[in-house]
Design a protein around this nucleic acid. Structure first.
Length: 400
DNA sequence: TAGGCCATCTGGTCCT
DNA sequence: AGGACCAGATGGCCTA
């Protein structure tokens, strides 16, 4: 019951109160004015005869929200119910709005102490028949308490803002590591999450099966559940191109990746306006050179070492695959290489070489990636293991 | 202009 | 009491 009333209050009076704030970006010092408009709305609300029953219920608890300027023996009253809301209500409603919470419907009255006192008494009488509520007696809402409550609310707002900013920062980082990233065409939050989920799933499938993904199914997996615009964007990023697909099966692949190279990613990427991590596109740029939008390893990790240290892996993520990034799954000469796979994921970008790039290592010691071809296709994978037979099989698979 | 997306405020709930 | 988290509500901005 009370919840319904409160909900009603929030939808009507409460929302209007917030609308009084205008843009949420306005400063909190407009709270006073907004509270006044909230009071006006409450006045209108409570004057509506059809709402009187609800208003009366509402007033039964709202009366505890009274400011304690008056010398009334308000402190002796028992809570009429639902008083738990009053403290917070008071934090946003000024005393005038609260004074409107009367069961006589005269809600447009000024915040007159005498009038309030009179109405308080009336409310007290109305409560006379009710059983006294148990529990701790509600404290008086003194001005000091009101002030503290307002300050608390403002601090909570600031924390909430910071929290959302952190969340958005995390989302931005996530945007950078999903296959399609454009500064000018940012994925929405929900699309970012969906694409990230699909991407993880796709990579998991690659790891699980150890096979090169089917081109179409790979794209379908990435775009599963995405909106049409996002699907178009991802498709554009991936630039499904059968020519690249076939070309990379050719001798260049082995030339660039050596005998240990299992296969290269078949999907090229098309440059988008403002897109990050543009492909070097055979331009002679080092594949690990990052695009201006793609911070190099150094800047990403604040460390010149390209080694990936899981214990230090807290900084901004580098995309294992961005719009034209590389996904390297490379063979490694490390003594540990037979224990685990080593997946190195690199950017490729415009411009010259800028260091070794970074790598992500799964399950093994971080081993520096070998030199990648400047002519590398944007999405290559190197297996840590000696899996040449499998790669041949995979290559054959893609020729099917 | 409608709809999508976003930032912000707000109150409720849970936990410390 | 206060912080974290959440969901609802709202208004602004942008785009088709």
């Amino acid at each position: 019951m009370l919840a319904g009333i409160v909900h009603f209050h929030r939808e009507e009076g409460g929302s209007t109160l917030r609308s009084g704030l205008g843009s949420p970006r306005r400063q909190n010092n407009e709270l006073g004015a907004s509270a006044s408009s909230g009071a006006a709305m409450l006045t209108r609300l409570f004057s509506d005869p059809s709402l009187i029953p609800e208003v009366q219920k509402f007033a039964s608890w709202a009366e505890d929200c009274e400011d304690d300027d008056e010398e009334d023996d308000n402190s002796d009253k028992e809570d009429g119910g639902g008083s738990s809301h009053c403290g917070l209500q008071d934090s946003t409603h000024d005393s005038s709005s609260v004074s409107g919470c009367k069961d006589d419907g005269d809600l447009g009255a000024d915040d007159d102490d005498e009038e309030e006192e009179e109405e308080e008494e009336g409310a007290d009488e109305a409560q006379g028949d009710r059983p006294k509520k148990r529990g701790p007696k509600k404290r008086k809402m003194t001005k000091a308490r009101l002030e503290r409550s307002k300050v608390r609310r403002q601090k909570a707002n600031a924390r909430e803002r910071n929290r959302m900013h952190d969340l958005n920062s995390a989302l931005d980082n996530l945007r950078k590591v999903v296959p399609c990233y454009s500064k000018t065409q940012k994925l929405s939050k929900i699309e970012t999450l969906r694409l990230a989920k699909n991407y993880i799933w796709a990579l998991s499938e690659i790891l699980r099966s150890g096979k090169r993904p089917d081109l179409v199914s790979y794209v379908q997996t990435l775009c599963k559940g995405l909106s049409q615009p996002t699907t178009n964007l991802v498709a554009g990023c991936l630039q499904l191109n059968s020519r690249n697909f076939l070309t990379e099966q050719g001798p260049e692949a082995s030339r660039y990746h050596g005998p240990g190279t299992p296969f290269m990613h078949p999907y090229g990427y098309q440059r988008l306006p403002g897109a990050q991590c543009q492909t070097s596109s055979m331009g002679g740029a080092h594949p690990l050179r990052t695009h201006p939008y793609c911070p190099p390893y150094d800047s990403l990790y604040g460390n010149a070492s390209p080694e990936y240290n899981s214990s230090e892996y807290e900084g901004p993520l580098s995309p294992p695959l961005c719009i034209n990034g590389n996904f390297s799954l490379k063979q490694d000469a490390s003594p540990d290489h037979d224990k685990s796979y080593h997946y190195s994921m690199h950017y490729s970008g415009l411009g010259g070489s800028r260091g070794p790039g970074h790598s992500l290592v799964f399950g093994g010691s971080g081993v520096r990636s070998g030199v990648h071809s400047e002519n590398i296709l944007p999405y290559d994978m190197h297996l840590h293991h000696d899996r040449a037979p499998m790669y041949e099989e995979l290559n054959a698979f893609f020729h099917n």
